[in-house]
Design a protein around this nucleic acid. Structure first.
Lengths: 192, 192
DNA sequence: GTCTATAGGCAGATAGAC
DNA sequence: GTCTATCTGCCTATAGAC
């Protein structure tokens, strides 16, 4: 299976994604993308008329990729702890690329975002919490894991902690500490 | 005890602080401050020659205020759970003002910050984790709370979770959910 | 300390040729 | 699809008068 050379539109999205994840919505410009992709600013506007549309597409693609990643987890892992571990490894992969979660970053920039993007960012977090809620709920019913309180609250805790830890880990350039924290989070769910 | 009318410098810092906490380092300008404080952009440069210096002062003041807040906690609360609850209420107060933690916000903007500011942001988190580490350590020694593993790791978990939850709560405009999460975090530390 | 005026550059975005 | 050229407006910052 070969991977086709990415078209211009995709290359633009790839560069823009990295820029948002590292510098935030207000920390990059069309000029930055132009240099890296090797086409003029005007050409970028052909593909994405406005910055709002560009970043909107970015969030859409990111959420789509996340959907794929978690359904792969559903198909390849059965035990709740394995699923949650695989989930946390998505975050580790992002951190390894010296990036913040795209939507975590946009959550920081939230008040400066166009309406359309704000809604998509919220949808992303909702999707994550929903998936975690169901993974936690199923795992507890099967007696694979244990935790107190509602699954939805535990899911909220997991997303918050992973996003927050990511924010700090990137600044500290300390992925090891992030892994340690993720591991101890999972340990807290293991049967005693 | 009366509060003196704030001087211009202080009013500039107050406005700038709110702008950074709501819009991020790259999401506001001297023009924004100028309008709100009611003096010209040029006058702002008299007080703070560069944006880097302005935000540097902001972080310094924020950390100083945090120092004061936690030493008040040390003096007014003895039980570890009370101390930690009071600590989490600092975050709630920030959230109530529709703001993100100043340094949490700057952690997102991290790669775009001047060196001096990057270092101060890290120092802020270090201070928080150190204080929490000692509060947790003392509390466990006195058998006021319980938790597994090193105090420093539990401290890291607390800061990460509170910062991450704040990021999400502000976007969702849902302080109640933040409170719930903070409460269940503390509940996890309570003696069984 | 505060102002007006302005520099010099970059932002997002458009027009029109190829 | 991509280009050059350009627009308008905002950015940080400075000069110099009051």
């Amino acid at each position: 299976m070969t991977i086709a050379a990415p078209d211009t539109r995709t290359r633009v999205l790839d560069v823009a994604e990295r820029l948002v994840q590292t510098r935030g919505f207000n920390g990059f410009s069309y000029a930055d993308i132009s240099v890296e992709v090797g086409i003029s600013k005007a050409s970028l506007h052909y593909h994405f008329p406005t910055k709002a549309e560009l970043v909107g597409c970015l969030v859409e693609r990111y959420e789509h990729d996340f959907h794929l990643a978690v359904s792969r987890i559903d198909n390849s892992h059965d035990h709740a702890l394995d699923r949650l571990k695989a989930y946390s490894e998505i975050y580790v992969r992002v951190l390894k690329a010296d990036r913040m979660c795209l939507c975590g970053m946009l959550a920081a920039d939230y008040t400066t975002l166009p309406d359309v993007i704000q809604k998509r960012v919220l949808k992303f977090f909702q999707f994550n919490e929903d998936w975690l809620t169901s993974a936690l709920s199923r795992g507890r019913a099967r007696k694979e894991i244990t935790f107190a309180g509602k699954p939805s609250e535990a899911a909220h805790l997991l997303v918050s902690t992973l996003e927050g830890a990511m924010l700090l880990a990137r600044a500290h350039k300390d992925i090891a500490r992030f892994r340690l924290l993720a591991a101890s989070l999972l340990k807290g769910l293991a049967l005693k």
